[in-house]
Design a protein around this nucleic acid. Structure first.
Lengths: 356, 356
DNA sequence: TTTAGCACTCCATCCCCCGGAGTGCTAAAC
DNA sequence: GTTTAGCACTCCGGGGGATGGAGTGCTAAA
């Protein structure tokens, strides 16, 4: 059977009506919204066809029609009109983007919160490292005889620091020597290589100094590891409870717990895709089988990409969510790009000592 | 009327039964659990008295009894037995305490998550600064001609750092001079004083250097401000949905949204109190009027105290929650104390240059 | 003061009924 | 061949009783 333009129009009306009301849509309601004047009987014939073709479903014989995942997919691919954002919407997002960013972890969770606030659905955010990170630069700042601040910069130009402590007093010049050693021997290495090199140096270094080396390198390892996991968060899960499909506490609890406890298992867009929409059973993950996900990615410097996603019922307002999320993601990319241009993020590697 | 020992015993049985089942408790069920053998009729008489005295309530004439807030209060104050933690429980908490702490913000949100996991109720955590913080020490590390890393240590000995950027190239020795200036002029000041001093210096400093000063001081201000707000988080809100009193999505949504959006408005224990229990209407906040809160505090260094709380229905399992939370809070105090002793947190102020 | 006995109350549940929204089908009209 | 009016049919949802069980309050006796 063929999908005539009228069938498409009817499908579109059904979907958009169902998106806004969550109630099955009947022939009468469709007739009222259709451009051409046709009788409800005609529409009923078309509806029967659409059900047969798999684009719509019928909860029971005497109810209206509800879109199927296949119907939503067609809608998203062909029928959905690009939603232009209103001035208020762009302004709201721009305002959100002007947030201060303390560090990357902060950005991730803030981005998640903002995305949730933007669309009134639960949202998630994560940062993906494209390849394994390494340390780019070390500094050691003496505080007192047995304390110093370790500052490390990772290859994505993020800076971390912590106050560390040694058992034995260390002189300032020794600390400076150690910093040189660290920059010579421990930059641009993977975690495993760093551990190995540390072991190698254990015998060759004065014990008092080796302790310092040890805590500093372990701190660096911690930074590297910390920057790879725990980088996914869920925000705005409470938005679920406003949706009629989640009035059932068990259902809401199930999805909410999954999202909060396993944010790292939420969908990631295919490499290269800026935005991806996954509808119902298109989700691999069992817990998301009857929800839809809209997920967008943005660039953070050369080596990383960030990701924000929205989880909602299959009848989610794809047009609005997609428009807002994509604008938001673009804004984030620009924000990071700007910093990059300003020198806030990547730094030419040639600019300071290192060896290997 | 007097509160005889038998009345107290009955009250205790009612409360403990209601805590575990959330169902009104009848005279027959009470008789089965009472130590002395009395008839249900006698118990009914006693129950009528307890209702009259305000310790119990009756949903309707022919239902069992339900504890009132006054009843819970008496229970918590007098009747509740100290709950000894099992080996598994202490082990679980100890394991949780062995978490790595990256920075304070991380600790707060982790503590909240752990508390929630420990008690299966929503939990919140915050850190309170006892007095206004200031910067204790600055360092500037040149990266390339127009980039440098600013490292600041606040008076509570936390270290923050960020890569910053200037318009004009700055020489390394100039950067060192600026660091001295910052340590002389901008340490141990409140935010407002820092801004004022920055303004004062605007005319007296070479423009190229002032830009550096400006971004560095503004970064410090951001750190100070960031460390005071956004320091409260809610975790495990999804636990609400498992409770029969929150099967109603609207009710759950209301409380959950409040907790997630305004964690800073959640109860803080009185100064000096290590643990506090607030039952139903004892909560000042309207949103918590028919929930109970158990909140414990722990010490972070000299100048700060942390705080973890649990929100649940008034029939929450006070004994278990209080025992676990207090053990957890003690563990956190010890953890910070240990670091302190090890020199990881506070540092004698005399140990490096400063004036003012 | 305690207890047995008993009538009473009230909720929860089931069931049935019924109206309304919506359908599918048929037959006529275009 | 397509569209439309008409009509019988289906099914959900909500409003009313019935019903039974858990629990009470009260009375009168122990």
């Amino acid at each position: 059977m063929e999908l005539t333009p009228r069938k498409k129009e009817i499908l579109k009306v059904v979907i958009e009506s169902y998106i806004s009301t969550a109630e099955p849509v009947g022939s009468k309601a469709i007739a009222a919204q259709l451009t051409s004047k046709v009788s409800t009987a005609t529409i009923r014939n078309e509806l029967a066809d659409l059900v047969e073709m798999g684009y719509l479903e019928q909860p029971h014989t005497s109810a209206g029609r509800v879109p199927s995942p296949k119907g939503y997919r067609l809608y998203v691919n062909e029928l959905m009109e690009q939603r232009a954002l209103s001035l208020q919407e762009t302004e709201q997002i721009n305002r959100a983007l002007r947030m201060k960013m303390q560090e990357l972890d902060g950005v991730i969770s803030k981005a998640g919160q903002m995305a949730a606030a933007l669309v009134n659905y639960p949202a998630y955010a994560m940062a993906g490292v494209k390849s394994e990170l390494a340390i780019q630069r070390f500094d050691l700042l003496g505080v007192d005889a047995t304390s110093f601040i370790a500052v490390v910069m990772t290859e994505d130009s993020r800076v971390s620091s912590r106050l560390l402590h040694t058992e034995l007093p260390v002189r300032a010049d020794a600390l400076a020597d150690l910093a040189v050693l660290l920059n010579e021997q421990f930059t641009h290495l993977h975690v495993s290589q760093m551990s190995r090199r540390l072991m190698d140096l254990a015998g060759q270094t004065a014990p008092g100094l080796f302790i310092v080396l040890n805590v500093a390198v372990n701190y660096a390892i911690e930074v590297l590891q910390g920057s790879e996991k725990n980088r996914a968060v869920t925000a705005g899960a409470n938005n679920l409870l406003k949706l009629p499909e989640f009035r059932d506490a068990d259902k809401a609890h199930e999805l909410m717990s999954f999202m909060v406890e396993n944010p790292e298992d939420l969908p990631v867009p295919a490499e290269g895709a800026h935005m991806q929409i996954l509808i119902g059973p298109e989700n691999v993950n069992e817990a998301l089988k009857d929800t839809s996900v809209v997920v967008a990615s943005y660039d953070i410097g050369d080596n990383m990409r960030g990701l924000i996603g929205v989880v909602g019922p299959t009848r989610m307002d794809y047009a609005t969510v997609a428009a807002r999320l994509s604008y938001f993601a673009e804004g984030l990319t620009k924000m990071f790009g700007k910093q990059e241009k300003e020198g806030l993020l990547p730094v030419p590697k040639e600019d300071h000592d290192r060896h290997e």
